[in-house]
Write a protein that binds this DNA or RNA. Structure first.
Lengths: 190, 190
DNA sequence: CTCCTTTATCAACGCTTGTTGACTTTTACG
DNA sequence: CGTAAAAGTCAACAAGCGTTGATAAAGGAG
């Protein structure tokens, strides 16, 4: 076969598997999302999943691959940094379900947990450090607690009225919290 | 058998099963915590689990049974209510692992998710309503996001430095957030 | 057309799971 | 003692899982 640009026929199948996998993992978690169900959703044979992704763990790794794409906060005044960050995270969260895959599986799967840690401790904290924020690790961690807690209640537990809160109201409520975690002096030092 | 006070021999076995179940559910989640493993931990036969609890779902229901025991906030000044609440929750959370059972399983098990909702929407919100707080449901929900997010990062994901933060520092950081969610006017109304 | 690589299908494997029923041991009362 | 209920043991089941290898169809290349 001589294709123009690596646009093999199998790429479609690969993509279909990945899409089905993401949906199943996001909805059912790692254990309950079976290879057979994913294959059925993608309308292919379970053996094809093994052919293209090796095994379940690798398929999951591929399905949970993503980039947070943190926004550039350098031009934002400190007192509104929280709101900008929250709005970005909420929109990012609703965009695709990769983050929901990660959150749902991180609770029982160590691979997912490690990746989740990398996202916050490995991207947020270094960004704060570069911005010369004191105690970057603690602040990044606190922001993670609020951000992940909101996502948990909103997308996983479907906790009313959080699940149906408008983005604007969510930003208005959570923004100042994030701003405080980012800018306030350590209250236990006072 | 004529026992003095319903103190059957089997009660010990029942308790041993329940203790082992709680530990396994808290550590592994619903799916990965197997009846066989629980029985092995309790040093009994898997069939005994069925004898005393019927099936896995009922065993889980028994293991996840608990009471939040919310503190009385009526005598606490409003501006410190958050700190009192956070301290109570953290201590309660470290006391026994029932809450961790619930959090870990709520992500994939609908029974656990429903029970989790009852704890916050069914106990916190009504308490606020009685205290004549406006928008009790939203405020209870917001507090749930911060509290559950903290528990998730600290106990489930083992997210440093949150996991090793002292209770005092956690209270100092989180308290004001909870207080604001409880007392601040709705920022999206401004 | 033939040939060979890519893609897909099928049936089966070994294993683990929750769950069951028949059986044996223990225990307390007459 | 004897006996009947309670407590515990054992082997097995049906079903579902991830995974594999043999085999068949598809589709350009020569």
């Amino acid at each position: 076969m001589l294709y123009g640009m690596a646009e093999k026929k199998s790429d479609r199948t690969r993509a279909a598997i990945l899409a089905a996998a993401r949906e199943r993992f996001a909805q059912d978690g790692y254990e309950r999302a079976t290879i057979r169900a994913i294959a059925a959703d993608a309308a292919i044979d379970p053996a094809m999943v093994m052919r293209y992704y090796g095994n379940k763990e690798k398929l999951f790794a591929a399905a949970a691959e993503f980039d947070v794409r943190l926004p550039d906060l350098s031009g934002v005044p400190r007192e509104h940094a929280g709101e900008v960050l929250v709005r970005h995270l909420v929109e990012r969260w609703e965009e695709d379900d990769t983050l929901r895959v990660l959150l749902r599986t991180a609770v029982t799967n160590e691979t997912a947990a490690e990746r989740m840690r990398q996202v916050f401790a490995g991207q947020l904290a270094p960004a704060f450090e570069r911005a010369a924020v004191d105690q970057p690790a603690v602040r990044a961690g606190l922001i993670a607690t609020q951000a992940l807690g909101f996502a948990l209640c909103r997308y996983i537990l479907a906790f009313e009225p959080i699940a149906t809160l408008s983005t604007d109201r969510a930003v208005a409520w959570l923004g100042p919290t994030i701003t405080r975690y980012l800018t306030a002096p350590d209250p236990s030092q006072a």
